[in-house]
Nucleic acid binder design. Structure first.
Length: 550
DNA sequence: ACCTGCCGCGCC
DNA sequence: AAAGGGCGCGGCAGGT
């Protein structure tokens, strides 16, 4: 499969100083093509979809729909699919022992791979928008390669700094199996305040019961609800939860498991979510709490170029909807500030809440109240997300800028709709059907924006990867003599990706050139998605030694 | 000894 | 501040 095989081959290539130029990930590309509303599948004139590709969309009421389990299998199975990259692998590293993951049964032959490549080419050529799909599939394939390279390179990580954070927050590392004394003390305070000497704070059920017994009318134990109440148990409980989170998610055990030789090698899963965003399958690289980012530190003589796309989602929405006024609000300035300047809302915070509400489908609260003002100012943008929601409520697929389509709703969703349309349907049936329909509408509303933003980010990274190679090649002429290690030891390279944010690890003397390349690549991405439409994608960018400084 | 569902919370 | 999208993960609880 794409990731696993890239993950095996990229380090092997990198270790010999070989840089992979380009890949086609037939599994990821095939999944997009099978699902996209831009393509016409099935095509009786073409060979059938091979069994090692994930299934396409199922019709309502039919079997074969991608259940979560199926989707997981398609995404994660070591044996389910293969890429053209394997052709190169077969010749380049054929001396490697055969493993269970590339047994003959599951492994397509070279002829089968070529046939599949031709089938995919035919699907693209017969689609409603071949140019967009080609950009998407090239970017998706580059993403698969980059995901493997991120793991091979690793994020530079200072165990010392991380341990310093843990000690200042949690106190000394507890003996094996024990909890930090500071957490134990806070837990004792909570138990005393609730008059519940045996309460287990880590048990949601136990804790909820304890809070209610103490007279607190809470429906959950979540922090935002607890904050509303004034009780002596609340402050230590919130403090405990904060420490417990750090301790269990990014504590000493995480350090032991995930940091080797000063590098965090995360398991990225490119294309791992429905919207095309990446996922992770271990280490939680996409959930690194701000607290521990201080531990991301460049090697001596190196720098981190940290960049994030400013207000990416609303800018993408402006491009999708060809909403000139919204694009104008973000030209040469913070887009949220642009909304204030235009008199749409009074404060930057209101602008942010209103836009998030529009893209997520908020109907209540401050956010819901602000959305109508946005609709008056930017009718084209609002019409686009409203249309996506309306389509989703009817069970239709929606599609991103470059051609990734949402899945059709699962069988239970259709069953709920069918039940509500029967003559003997109860009011509860009808409420249920409306409720799940609207939920799916919120998903598709967000899908078009989040998915198109993911495409922008992939194009950004893919363009950057090429530009970094040029910078690295120029630098290599100078340092070739001593460059004996991997391709990551001497040249600037990507080390982190987080939806709309990247980090490049680079020799200090090349950091400014890398920063320029990062900005130029963002402009490339904007053109790849939206052509000449005048929507800008400015970056927040910093050249730093530690991620926390960015 | 697993597995699954749920909660809460970290990130975008 | 409030509850609208996408995730992964750790922990508990209840099942087999």
């Amino acid at each position: 499969m794409g990731v696993a095989r890239h993950a095996r081959v990229v380090p092997a290539a990198a270790g010999r100083g070989v840089r992979v130029e380009r890949v086609v990930d037939l599994r990821l590309c095939g999944a997009i093509l099978e699902q996209s509303t831009m393509t016409d599948v099935p095509r009786p004139d073409l060979p059938p979809r091979p069994s090692w590709l994930p299934p396409g969309p199922a019709e309502p009421g039919e079997g074969g729909l991608a259940t979560p389990a199926d989707a997981a299998a398609a995404t994660l199975s070591e044996t389910s699919a293969v890429t053209l990259f394997d052709l190169a692998e077969a010749s380049a590293v054929s001396h490697e022992p055969t493993t269970a993951s590339n047994s003959a049964i599951d492994r397509p032959t070279a002829a089968e791979l070529v046939a599949e490549l031709r089938r995919q080419d035919a699907l693209i050529a017969g689609s409603t928008s071949p140019a967009r799909l080609r950009v998407l599939l090239a970017a998706e394939s580059a993403g698969a390669l980059i995901g493997a390279e991120l793991r091979a390179a690793g994020l530079p990580w200072s165990t010392d700094v991380h341990e310093g954070v843990l000690e200042s927050e949690l106190g000394a590392r507890p003996p094996h199996g024990g909890k930090p004394a500071r957490m134990a003390a806070l837990a004792a305070d909570v138990r005393a305040a609730l008059d519940a000497p045996t309460l287990n704070l880590d048990s949601q059920i136990d804790l909820l019961r304890g809070l209610r017994n103490a007279g607190l009318p809470v429906a959950s134990t979540s922090r935002w609800e607890l904050r509303e109440h004034d009780h002596p148990a609340i402050p230590p409980l919130i403090a405990y939860k904060k420490l417990a989170r750090l301790y269990s998610a990014n504590g000493w055990a995480w350090l032991d498991e995930w940091i080797r030789d000063g590098r965090f090698r995360a398991d990225y899963v490119p294309g791992g979510t429905a919207t095309g965003r990446w996922a992770t399958s271990g280490g939680g690289a996409l959930q690194l709490p701000k607290q521990v980012r201080r531990a991301v530190v460049a090697d001596p003589g190196w720098r981190l170029v940290v960049a994030d796309a400013a207000q990416l989602d609303p800018r993408v929405l402006a491009g999708l909807a060809l909403d000139e006024r919204m694009a104008e609000a973000g030209r040469g300035r913070d887009l949220y500030a642009g909304l204030v300047d235009s008199g749409v809302v009074e404060t930057r915070d209101q602008a942010k809440v209103a836009l998030l509400g529009a893209m997520y489908g908020a109907t209540t609260g401050d956010s819901g109240r602000l959305v109508p003002r946005l609709a008056r100012a930017y009718p084209k943008a609002m019409a686009l997300v409203d249309r996506a929601a309306a389509d989703g409520e009817r069970g239709l697929r929606v599609t991103t800028r470059l051609g990734r389509s949402s899945p059709v709703p699962p069988p239970a969703w259709w069953e709920a709709q069918t039940r509500a349309s029967q003559p003997d349907a109860s009011p509860a049936d009808e409420r249920r059907a409306r409720s799940v329909a609207r939920e799916w509408g919120r998903f598709t509303r967000n899908f078009v924006v989040q998915g198109s933003s993911a495409e922008w980010a992939l194009c950004w990274m893919a363009a950057l990867r090429s530009r970094l190679a040029e910078i690295g090649a120029a630098g290599a002429a100078v340092t070739r003599a001593e460059a004996s290690g991997t391709v990551f030891d001497s040249a600037p390279h990507l080390v982190y990706f987080l939806h709309d944010e990247i980090i490049v690890h680079t020799p200090a003397e090349q950091a400014e050139r890398v920063a320029d390349a990062v900005r130029e690549s963002a402009a490339d991405a904007g053109r790849l998605l939206f052509g000449a439409f005048p929507v800008e994608f400015p970056l927040g960018l910093a050249i730093v030694e530690s991620y926390a400084e960015a």
